Computed example of a mutant assay.
Amino acid sequence: MTGPVEPPRPPDPSKRPPRRKRVVLADSRAPVTVLRTVVELEEQTSWAEEVVRGFIRTQFKTAVRLALALICTLGLLPLVFFLAPGLAGVSVAGVALPWVLLGVLPFPLLFGLAYWYNVLAERHERDFVDMVEK
């Protein structure tokens, strides 16, 4: 047969199960209007679509304005050299001025316009987020 049966031991206090933690899915202190706005954006209601369309329109207008500035700046240079042929004879460090302006000027100009667009785009995004959170 089997050996003697031992009585059950009391639970060891050092091996207690961990305390239960409360899990909160949503911050109840958040303003209701922010939650409604976010829900409307997620559900793509007609109001939310109009707000997003306005944001995209603003970003597009900024891009077009800066592109036009670039086109006007670089696009008019050949016209200036055509209308003022005396400038074609000027040389800088042994290189004709038109080549210097058309070969060197675009790089810092493109960098500057790209940086400016980035600053403006981030500002538009901050304004959009501020509007949504209010």
Results as ranks from 00 to 15, higher is better:
88 A>S: 13
44 Q>A: 14
93 A>T: 04
16 R>D: 03
31 P>L: 14
62 T>L: 14
79 L>I: 12
39 V>E: 11
77 L>F: 13
83 L>I: 05
78 P>I: 00
95 V>E: 09
130 D>K: 05
49 E>K: 15
55 F>A: 09
45 T>C: 10
42 E>S: 11
22 R>E: 10
94 G>V: 03
127 D>S: 07
102 L>E: 11
106 P>Y: 00
132 V>N: 03
118 N>W: 08
77 L>M: 14
18 P>M: 02
49 E>F: 08
50 E>F: 08
39 V>I: 10
92 V>T: 08
116 W>N: 07
22 R>Q: 09
56 I>M: 08
23 V>P: 09
5 V>M: 13
50 E>Q: 15
95 V>T: 14
80 V>T: 14
109 L>Q: 03
87 L>P: 04
117 Y>C: 04
51 V>E: 13
82 F>G: 05
50 E>K: 15
55 F>V: 03
29 R>A: 12
111 F>K: 12
63 A>F: 15
3 G>T: 10
65 R>I: 12
37 T>V: 11
76 L>N: 05
40 E>T: 10
68 L>V: 12
83 L>A: 10
41 L>F: 14
55 F>N: 06
24 V>A: 15
76 L>I: 11
113 L>P: 01
49 E>P: 04
106 P>I: 00
11 P>K: 00
47 W>M: 07
105 L>F: 13
43 E>K: 02
33 T>D: 09
98 P>N: 00
100 V>C: 04
119 V>R: 14
51 V>C: 11
11 P>S: 00
35 L>S: 10
103 G>C: 00
112 G>C: 08
134 K>M: 10
100 V>F: 04
69 A>S: 04
119 V>H: 07
103 G>S: 00
6 E>W: 15
67 A>T: 07
35 L>C: 08
129 V>N: 09
75 G>C: 05
1 M>H: 13
117 Y>K: 05
11 P>H: 00
10 P>R: 00
124 H>L: 09
99 W>V: 08
38 V>S: 10
90 V>N: 06
86 G>I: 01
52 V>H: 11
60 F>S: 12
132 V>D: 03
34 V>S: 12
43 E>P: 02
76 L>P: 02
114 A>R: 08
28 S>M: 09
52 V>D: 11
104 V>N: 02
103 G>R: 00
96 A>Q: 12
67 A>I: 04
56 I>Y: 09
2 T>G: 10
104 V>H: 02
43 E>W: 02
75 G>P: 04
3 G>H: 12
69 A>E: 04
127 D>R: 09
6 E>V: 15
27 D>A: 14
17 P>Y: 14
32 V>G: 08
105 L>R: 05
20 R>D: 03
51 V>P: 07
18 P>K: 02
10 P>E: 01
112 G>A: 14
78 P>K: 00
66 L>R: 01
110 L>D: 09
129 V>G: 07
33 T>F: 09
64 V>S: 03
27 D>S: 13
20 R>M: 05
14 S>Y: 10
92 V>K: 05
32 V>S: 13
66 L>N: 02
71 I>L: 10
